[in-house]
Structure formats: C-alpha cells, structure tokens
Design a protein around this nucleic acid. Structure first.
Length: 470
RNA sequence: GUCCCCUUCGUCUAGUGGCCUAGGACGUCGCCCUCUCACGGCGAUAACACGGGUUCAAAUCCCGUAGGGGACGCCA
C-alpha cells in the first residue's frame, strides 16, 4: 500500500495514433519519478474526442509501453467513460456562479479572433455572454468558466521554476461543449483530481494551459497538484518532432532492430543526465532520476547515439533472448533455404554474432551464415577472396584439415598458423579465403569459431563447394 | 499579433560564483590491437549565442539584444 502522501503520476496520451517516441519519453519520466519516490504511475487514455480516438491506438499505446517495460499501476482509465462526472463538475461550477452558458457561434468566435489579431490584441474570448441573463435550450450553448481576470497566477514548476502569468491573459474558456461532452481542459483537471494525481509531469507545450487549469482547481476549491513541464523533443533538424519529422512509433524502433532497454536509456538521457553516466540500467535510473534535475532546453533526436547505445545493449543481451527475437526474421527470409540444426548453431555462435551487431536486423543477417543450407551464395568480396591465390591456399590447407584429430577453434587456429608459417604467408592469407568459402562473405565472426560451430562435416562440405566452383 | 519558455563542442550533456587553461558521451579524423568486421585502447577535433552590468572573482547572478521553441479551438 502506498503511503497516504505518496507520489502518484500519470501518463495521459490521446489515442489518435501510435505511441510516438516523444510520448514514450514523457511516460518514462513519469514512471521513473513515481518509482523513485516509491509511488504509483497510472495510465489514462484521453479519448474524449470520439472522432479521432480509435481502439487500435489504445492497443498500440499499451503494447508500446509494455514493450518498453513501462508498467502502469491499476487499470487503464478511459477519460470518455468519465464524461458524466465531468459534466457534473461543469454544472456545479454553473450553480456556484463560477461558470456561465455561452451561445456564441463558431463563426462569431472566428470573427472575434480575426478582429483581435488584426487589431494586435490577444486572441481571446471577450466574455460577452457572461453578462447575459438567458436560458438557452440544451444543445445550443457551451459552458464557459468565469475566469478570474484580476491579479496573476504563480506556478512553482519543478522543472521550469517560478512562472508568472497575468490573469488578464486568461479567457473564459470552454468547459462543456454544446453536445454536453467535456473539453480537455475540464477533463484533465477533474480526472487528475479524482485519481489523486500528486505530480503532473508533461510536455512544456502544456505550460500555458496550466494557468487555465489552475483556475478550475481554484474555482472548485481543490488543491493543485505539483507540476513539472519537461522540454519537448526535436527532430535531428532542430524542428519540432512531428509525424513528418521523425516522430515514429516505438514499434518502428523495434522493427529497426532496437532493444527496448536501449531506447529507454537513450530517451532518459534527452533532457536529463547524472554526472558522466551514459549507460544507465532501469534500477539505476529509478535510484537517480528526479524530475527536478530535468533540463529546460529542448533536445534533438540523434539516431547515431541511439544506435551506439543499442549496440552496447546488444552485447549485454541474453543469447537465448536474442535468438528468439531474430528467429522469426530468419525463418521468414530463408524459408526452404533453412539448414538443419540452424537454431542450435545460431545459439552457439551468438556471442560472436552479437558482439558485431548494432541491432537485431544486422544480427539476423549475420546469423544467416549458420542458418543457410548449402550451397552458399557468395558476395562480391568473397569471390575476390576466392581468386587463384586464395583457392590455391585453400586447396593446400584442405589437406591439413583431414589430418586433424579434433575440430575446435583452438586446434583449427593452430593448424592454420602452422600452415601459414610453412607456406610463408600471413595468417590472413588463409583465414580470408576460408571465411569466404565458409560464410560466402568477407565479414563474419572469427573464422575458426565459425568452423567449430559448423562442425567438421559442414565445414569441409562448404570448402569443397568453393573449391569445386572456383 | 499577444503571452510563456529556452540558448555550453555538429549532437546529448556535466557544470548551481573561485576546483573550468570548461569534463564525459555520440559523431568525425588519426594510431594501436587484429584472420575480416566489430569490440577495446590511445590521441586529435570542437562549445559557454551576443552586448552590458553586479562582484576581488561569472558558463554560473541581473538587464537588454538576437536566434529558437511553445501556447492562444465546442483538439488533446
């Protein structure tokens, strides 16, 4: 059970598409902060806009969070389902004289904004309906908050520090639409209050909204939560991250070969750091992360750094787990060309493979040397290696291989070294043609390791294939 | 247009008045290691946006300027 005053944070995305990378970062920061404080992290879907919300998006958000290992406490809250509660609050404000009915049409409002803009005035609702004594029919009015226009509102933001805004900047915004559904502004406040949210951690695009929302808290006599507005993420070009500018869904990063722990590690370093630490485990992050240490400046997304961190986590990852990830990819690609015992070979060779792969795509490709059925196809570089000289060395070394009592990488390595010395060549002169014959490529894990994993029979067969062909 | 926010190497950051001739990481470029490719090791490159203050002392505090971002919906 959490302590009565324990921290409760939430992630509240709108289900209008996949969980994009910026949203994932917001969720991560909320999660880390809650865990750091020994509190709870909740998930609420802001689906009050029925026209744009889809179940697919709700599913994508959940699966995205699960993939990243960001688990939420309790059940997912649907904001839409709480609409009656939101309306109840709107009517309570109406009854208390803190809100009023407005019958202005969208056309009137557009004209008002246009006029204000050309006149150089702020584009705000002028409150003309607040003085009317009317009783419009249901469906013909919206409910607006009668905002406090005097004085100023001071926000003590955990990240932004103290921010002051004159209340004259805040207009009488809409709480309830003419169809009786709540707007975002009302719904967030009511839900955050009802869910007991103590810390609202969100993008700083919400910073100015906060001053509006604080007016609702005040009107209702509710305590305000603590706010923390984190800087947004930008694309590599320095522009706001949007769907056109690289704001991909988290599953896109999975499909590009990223490991979730690498994505999390990268994301948490955008706008936050802890001394010189770069590789930070989840446990370490929970221990260190505090929202007050988040910087104020927007950060650019850097694919190179993500790739580097991913490569690091690839090396650390469990062999079996990696095999499970790449197996379906290899199966799909090879089909009938899959060799007998491919999976066992891949698992045995995983250490050598994963050390060289930046991502799971590369890993799956490099693992093909163990998965493909004979005869191999040779890439251009491999064919270069199997030139007259290479084939000649290979032929001679082939004879030595038959004399070997055992077939392990050390024995093979020693045999090759001995052969090279006898013939008076460098080790590479025999290792490279061997690699080409055995893998069809010029790039692979250590060739003697490959030979051990392939086994004597398969290795010799591959060498003979090459000797016959070239 | 109005309001709000931001500004340290190309990028992410450390730095909270003296430890800064500004540290780390990614990238880039050398060299070493080496059977290829990676890893790793060593080294190099490169920044306090600008201008004024305050102070014995400023990347750090204050004020301007410039540049960037965000908000201004019956979207969230």
């Amino acid at each position: 059970m959490p302590k009565p005053n324990a921290v409760i944070t939430r992630f509240a995305p709108s289900p209008t598409g996949f969980l994009h990378i910026g949203g994932a970062r917001t969720a991560l920061f909320n999660y880390l902060y809650a865990k750091h404080m020994g509190g709870k992290f909740l998930l609420r879907i802001e689906d009050t806009d029925r026209a744009r919300s889809t179940q697919e998006a709700v599913d994508a958000i959940q699966s995205g969070l699960k993939w990243l290992g960001i688990d939420w406490d309790g059940d997912l809250v649907s904001q839409f389902e709480r609409a009656p509660r939101h309306a109840e609050i709107a009517y309570e404000l109406l009854a208390r004289g803190k809100a009023y009915k407005c019958t202005c049409t969208p056309e009137e409002l557009d004209a008002m904004r246009e006029e204000a803009k050309t006149a150089g005035r702020p584009m705000r609702y002028d409150g003309r309906c607040s003085v009317k004594t009317h009783d419009p029919a249901p469906g013909t009015f919206v409910v607006r908050l009668k905002a406090e226009h005097a004085g100023e509102t001071v926000l003590q933001d955990l990240i932004q520090g103290e921010v002051r805004v004159s209340n004259s900047e805040i207009d009488d915004f809409v709480l309830l639409r003419s169809d009786g559904t709540p707007t975002y502004m009302l719904a967030v406040v009511v839900d955050d209050h009802d869910m007991g949210i103590t810390h609202v951690v969100r993008g700083d695009d919400h910073l100015t909204n906060t001053f509006r929302q604080m007016q609702i808290y005040t009107a209702m006599g509710w305590p305000t939560p603590t706010f923390a507005h984190m800087p947004l993420m930008h694309g590599s070009d320095g522009k706001k991250l949007s769907k056109r500018h690289g704001a991909l869904g988290v599953e896109a990063y999975r499909d590009m070969g990223c490991l979730p722990e690498a994505v999390c590690n990268y994301l948490m370093r955008l706008g936050w750091g802890h001394g010189d630490a770069e590789i930070i485990s989840r446990e370490q992050a929970i221990e260190w992360f505090d929202v007050k240490d988040v910087g104020k400046a927007a950060a650019r997304f850097d694919a190179d750094k993500l790739a580097n961190i991913n490569a690091h986590y690839m090396r650390l990852a469990d062999d079996q787990r990696l095999a499970d990830i790449i197996w379906p990819m290899i199966e799909a690609k090879l089909g009938n060309a899959m060799a007998e015992g491919a999976r066992e070979r891949i698992l045995k060779g995983m250490v050598g493979l994963k050390d060289r792969a930046k991502n799971t795509i590369e890993l799956a490709e490099s693992a093909e040397i163990y998965a493909r059925k004979r005869p191999l196809v040779f890439n251009d570089a491999a064919m270069q290696l199997l030139n007259e000289e290479g084939i000649s060395h290979l032929q001679q070394f082939r004879v030595h291989l038959d004399t070997l009592a055992s077939w392990d990488s050390t024995t093979l390595h020693d045999a090759a070294k001995e052969f090279a010395e006898q013939v008076g060549i460098k080790l590479g002169k025999i290792a490279q043609p061997l690699r080409a014959a055995l893998t069809g490529s010029n790039i692979s894990p250590g060739v003697f390791e490959v030979m051990e994993i392939l086994g004597r029979g398969e290795s010799l067969a591959r060498i003979d294939d090459a000797l016959a062909k070239f």
